[in-house]
Amino acid sequence: MSPDAGDAAQRVVLTGDGPLLLEGPVEVELPDGTTARSERPVVALCVCRRSAIHPWCDTSHRRRARRKPPEENA
């Protein structure tokens, strides 16, 4: 994005082990050079690469088994 693209900062929300939330509309450039565009007010971008509708999140990250923290020895 060029420096003169606008004065307002784009808001990005990191959700831990879920998607990356962006205030929309957004246009995403994919590795193959194509672009995906969403006009939604909030867009969830997949960061786990499990989504069937990548780059958009389809909540596939929720099906991943979570590791339990190691038991502490007293």
Rank of each mutant, 00 (worst) to 15 (best):
E71F: 02
T15C: 02
T15S: 10
A36C: 08
S38F: 02
V26C: 12
C48P: 03
I53T: 11
L20I: 14
S60Q: 00
K68D: 14
E72F: 09
A36D: 08
L14F: 04
R37C: 02
G16I: 09
R63Q: 03
P55F: 09
T15A: 01
P19I: 09
V12F: 14
H61D: 00
R64V: 15
R62A: 11
G33M: 08
L14T: 03
L30K: 09
G18T: 11
R49A: 13
R62C: 05
E71T: 10
E71C: 01
K68Q: 15
T59Y: 12
G16C: 08
P70Y: 03
A44P: 04
N73V: 14
C57I: 01
P69Y: 04
S51E: 07
P70I: 06
R64E: 11
A52H: 04
V12D: 03
G24T: 11
R64D: 09
G33R: 06
E72P: 14
I53F: 05
P19V: 10
L30E: 08
S60G: 00
G16T: 08
P55G: 05
L45M: 04
P19Y: 06
G18H: 12
G16Y: 06
V13T: 13
V43I: 11
L20V: 15
T34Q: 14
H54R: 09
H54F: 13
T15R: 04
N73I: 14
E71Q: 14
G18N: 10
T59Q: 07
E72L: 15
V12T: 13
S60T: 02
R40V: 00
C57G: 04
G16P: 08
P31W: 10
C46V: 03
R37L: 06
L22C: 15
P31R: 08
L30V: 05
V13L: 09
R50I: 06
D32W: 05
N73P: 08
A52R: 09
W56A: 07
G24P: 12
